[in-house]
Design a protein around this nucleic acid. Structure first.
Lengths: 343, 343
DNA sequence: ATTTCTAACTGACACGTGTTAGTAAGCGTC
DNA sequence: GACGCTTACTAACACGTGTCAGTTAGAAAT
């Protein structure tokens, strides 16, 4: 790019006005201080020269970068589970609509954790959205307590956090009602992460509560721990069904794990839903097209990303969001992977 | 964030030196112009005050943003097909390792297309990686011809483009050998996009060439056009198998479409691989865990993203990449979705 | 004619950094 | 002691923009 940059100075010269006037015309949209004729001359000059303000200079003087950071915890989850991508898409589109740029940064759980400071202290971003935040993340807590404009997609259970989460309990209750209504009595679960993660614990608790309402229990040896991936679903499914062959219904931590469970069931000679009922979580785009089509709980990740963006936008404009913690309600979707328990 | 920013001026005062010295100490890592004792005093002061240079000021004076743009054409593909996410992950990790930031921007095909200029002309980014570039994208061509540091993940067939693509022909040949070797004679294909897309056309051509080498043809009415999604795979599969029930093997444009084809086959009462053989494309993480496990062609999207980053890095440092067009070689992976044709 | 007022524009500063030309000090050399 | 040379540091400029306080010109009022 050997081309010379066009500055506001060039525009001013071409329009026969001062640089200050150019700036006023281009920024103060409806202020009447500028004569109509002058305004038009400036706009024409800017157009002809193809003037685009230098973002760095503008950032420097205004203190704003018009950019938000999107931190993805454990980015390798992106590789295996499509849900994170749904949120990312929601965040990107919503910000584009608002005229904001999105800087994506992965945060390795074993890394230095300085990623936040790199972005925040250097004033490279105005606000932050954090995907899958970890409760023990000290740097993150510190930012929350400094009141830095930050929205969590997930939760670290901090009293002052601003977050978008899912109220999974109602949908899980419906799912349990459905499964128990089909006659299942021995139910298993495969989580997408260790119980220490807030979302995992909350979902297991909801599941247990739901079963308890029907006089049933979620046995400790009917729980397996996965890691988001189909492979982990397969392994956990094999382990669970081998240890507890009497289990007739499994709740998977997400749809991706459910794929692996389907494969495990098949490997063990059990047909879904005749010999085993399976419930997924998320309703990813492939869920209706698995064989059998997956009964699942629909969490709208795109929407979650959009809401997070909207809340961050409020904070960036100095307004504290009307509701600091938004809880979205997932739907329960019945398809073909759940069926009557054998008598 | 009511906290006052720490500037290099503060560091200078605390260390008892001039601001210039601070800058020299922090930037000229191994230049010996600074006395060891002074250097240490400055570093200590910077550490104590928690000094982080303001990125905007640095960008302004250096003309570099240490940020690259990642343009995702038709971002909604992200939602349905996991392959794009693999590349994104590769790009993000590689750039993080190089100390560069990544700005992600979706480019709607029907949009104004000004996304490039927004980023480039405002000097917000130093270089660009474009995912799934469109051959007809005038703004993109213009950047290529201006020699802007830009790497394509894909191709627009421009003589001066710098790109990372896949040489799909050898792997597709192997796949055809495999399928024909199993006795299949009537083969169908479902693409992930209209033939006008370069990759689609190239893969169909390779497929046709492979079949021709065996004295077979890819009939026009045995080709269906999909759109990356499992749903499109399902619909295309239904259409193809209804119109040409004699087809015994199908090549899917990607693994995601293959999911839909599996479901279509099932809906029509055909079992894979007994009644129908299926070959996917990409080897996404779920491919081994579908039922049956998917025979497919492995394209390493993460690697592709890393290579693209590396090539862009070369360009940013003024070196033109050793090989302007890297072609990666996919592997052919045989699993359980392909089997002997019925006699 | 002088003052006051308004509309329309401009001069000059600030933002925080990287860098180059330049200075001051120390030291040896003739 | 004048001179040159090296070492270690600093003053000052440049980057391109947003934004006031201030200036000019013309009209209106006194």
């Amino acid at each position: 790019m050997p081309t010379k940059r066009v500055t506001s100075h060039d525009v001013a010269r071409q329009a026969g006005v001062s640089r200050a006037t150019v700036s006023l015309v281009l920024n103060r949209s409806e202020s009447v201080v500028i004569a109509k004729e002058t305004r038009e001359r400036v706009l024409r000059a800017a157009g002809e020269l193809g003037y685009k303000p230098n973002s760095a200079a503008r950032m420097l003087v205004s203190g704003q970068s018009e950019t938000i950071g999107l931190i993805v915890s454990d980015p390798s989850i992106l590789l295996v589970d499509q849900f994170v991508t749904q949120v990312l898409y929601g965040v990107e589109t919503a910000n584009r609509q608002l005229g904001l740029h999105v800087l994506v940064a992965g945060l390795e759980s074993d890394g230095p954790g300085s990623t936040y400071d790199d972005l925040v202290e250097s004033r490279r971003i105005d606000g932050l959205i954090v995907l899958n935040p970890k409760a023990g993340d000290a740097a993150l807590i510190s930012l929350i307590e400094k009141d830095f404009p930050l929205v969590l997609v997930g939760s670290v259970r901090h009293p002052r956090e601003v977050a978008v989460t899912f109220a999974t309990r109602p949908a899980l209750m419906k799912a349990v009602d459905h499964v128990v209504g089909l006659g299942h009595r021995r139910v298993g679960a495969i989580t997408f992460s260790p119980r220490s993660f807030i979302a995992t614990e909350a979902r297991l608790a909801a599941l247990e509560a739901g079963l308890r309402a029907h006089g049933l229990a979620l046995d400790a040896d009917a729980i397996e721990i996965g890691d988001f991936s189909p492979e982990s679903g397969h392994c956990a499914g094999l382990a669970l069904l081998s240890r507890r062959p009497d289990v007739t219904a499994i709740f998977a931590g997400n749809d991706t794990i459910a794929i692996g469970v389907l494969s495990a069931a098949h490997a063990l000679g059990r047909t879904v839903p005749q010999d085993l009922s399976l419930v997924g979580f998320d309703d990813l785009p492939f869920a209706p097209w698995l064989t059998p089509a997956l009964t699942t709980i629909r969490t709208d990740g795109v929407h979650q990303g959009q809401i997070a963006t909207q809340m961050l936008f409020e904070r960036l404009n100095g307004r504290s969001p009307a509701v600091p913690r938004v809880r979205l309600e997932p739907d329960f979707i019945v398809r073909a992977s759940t069926g009557s328990a054998k008598p």
